[in-house]
Simulated assay, not measured.
Amino acid sequence: MLTPMYPAKVLLLGEYTILNGSKALALPYHELSGKWSTENNETEVRENSRKSLLNLAEKMNLPLLKKDLGEGLWFDSSIPQGFGLGSSGAVIAAVFDRYGKTQDDLEANKIALARLEDFFHGSSSGFDPLVSHIQKPLLIHNVHEVEVLEERPNLKGFFLVNTGKPRQTGPLVSIYQEKMKDPQFKQGCAEILAKDVNFAIDAVLKNDTTNLFHHIWHISKFQWEFFPEMIPTSVRGLWAQGLETGDFALKLCGAGGGGFLLGYSNKLDLHEMRQILNTHELRDLT
Results as ranks from 00 to 15, higher is better:
residue 92 I to P: 03
residue 46 R to P: 05
residue 110 K to H: 13
residue 52 S to G: 05
residue 119 F to H: 14
residue 71 E to P: 01
residue 76 D to F: 00
residue 109 N to Q: 12
residue 87 S to W: 06
residue 97 D to F: 01
residue 55 N to L: 06
residue 87 S to F: 05
residue 63 P to Q: 10
residue 72 G to S: 10
residue 82 G to E: 09
residue 97 D to V: 00
residue 52 S to N: 13
residue 93 A to K: 00
residue 57 A to E: 02
residue 57 A to F: 05
residue 78 S to I: 06
residue 109 N to T: 05
residue 86 G to C: 12
residue 107 E to P: 00
residue 94 A to W: 04
residue 115 R to V: 01
residue 45 V to W: 01
residue 104 D to E: 14
residue 53 L to K: 11
residue 94 A to Y: 06
residue 81 Q to V: 15
residue 69 L to D: 14
residue 55 N to F: 02
residue 99 Y to W: 07
residue 101 K to G: 06
residue 106 L to H: 08
residue 62 L to Y: 03
residue 118 D to A: 03
residue 63 P to M: 07
residue 46 R to T: 13
residue 93 A to I: 11
residue 118 D to S: 09
residue 111 I to P: 03
residue 45 V to Q: 06
residue 110 K to C: 11
residue 78 S to F: 00
residue 77 S to V: 11
residue 112 A to C: 08
residue 120 F to H: 09
residue 103 Q to C: 08
residue 56 L to P: 02
residue 122 G to P: 12
residue 122 G to A: 04
residue 50 R to N: 02
residue 74 W to T: 11
residue 96 F to K: 04
residue 82 G to N: 06
residue 102 T to H: 07
residue 91 V to F: 02
residue 89 G to H: 00
residue 108 A to V: 04
residue 65 L to V: 03
residue 108 A to M: 15
residue 96 F to Q: 05
residue 122 G to S: 14
residue 114 A to S: 15
residue 45 V to H: 14
residue 82 G to M: 05
residue 103 Q to D: 09
residue 98 R to G: 05
residue 60 M to F: 00
residue 87 S to I: 10
residue 118 D to N: 12
residue 113 L to F: 12
residue 117 E to N: 02
residue 118 D to C: 09
residue 73 L to K: 07
residue 66 K to Y: 05
residue 49 S to M: 03
residue 71 E to C: 08
residue 57 A to K: 02
residue 84 G to I: 07
residue 48 N to V: 03
residue 118 D to T: 04
residue 84 G to E: 04
residue 73 L to M: 09
residue 75 F to C: 03
residue 118 D to V: 01
residue 122 G to C: 10
residue 59 K to I: 06
residue 45 V to K: 15
residue 45 V to E: 05
residue 97 D to N: 12
residue 89 G to Q: 02
residue 87 S to A: 15
residue 85 L to D: 02
residue 71 E to K: 15
residue 98 R to Q: 08
residue 87 S to D: 09
residue 81 Q to W: 02
residue 59 K to Y: 09
residue 88 S to V: 07
residue 67 K to F: 09
residue 49 S to I: 05
residue 78 S to P: 03
residue 113 L to I: 04
residue 63 P to T: 04
residue 50 R to A: 14
residue 105 D to C: 11
residue 51 K to N: 13
residue 98 R to D: 04
residue 68 D to Q: 14
residue 66 K to A: 15
residue 73 L to N: 04
residue 46 R to I: 09
residue 58 E to T: 15
residue 80 P to I: 06
residue 66 K to D: 07
residue 99 Y to T: 07
residue 98 R to A: 10
residue 45 V to N: 06
residue 54 L to H: 12
residue 111 I to R: 12
residue 58 E to S: 12
residue 109 N to R: 07
residue 116 L to S: 06
residue 81 Q to G: 00
residue 85 L to N: 06
residue 55 N to P: 07
residue 91 V to N: 02
residue 89 G to T: 00
residue 66 K to E: 12
residue 88 S to M: 10
residue 92 I to M: 01
residue 103 Q to H: 06
residue 95 V to S: 08
residue 67 K to Q: 14
residue 121 H to E: 12
residue 120 F to G: 12
residue 53 L to N: 08
residue 54 L to S: 13
residue 57 A to Y: 09
residue 52 S to A: 15
residue 110 K to L: 06
residue 121 H to C: 11
residue 62 L to K: 04
residue 113 L to T: 13
residue 88 S to W: 05
residue 121 H to W: 07
residue 47 E to T: 12
residue 62 L to Q: 11
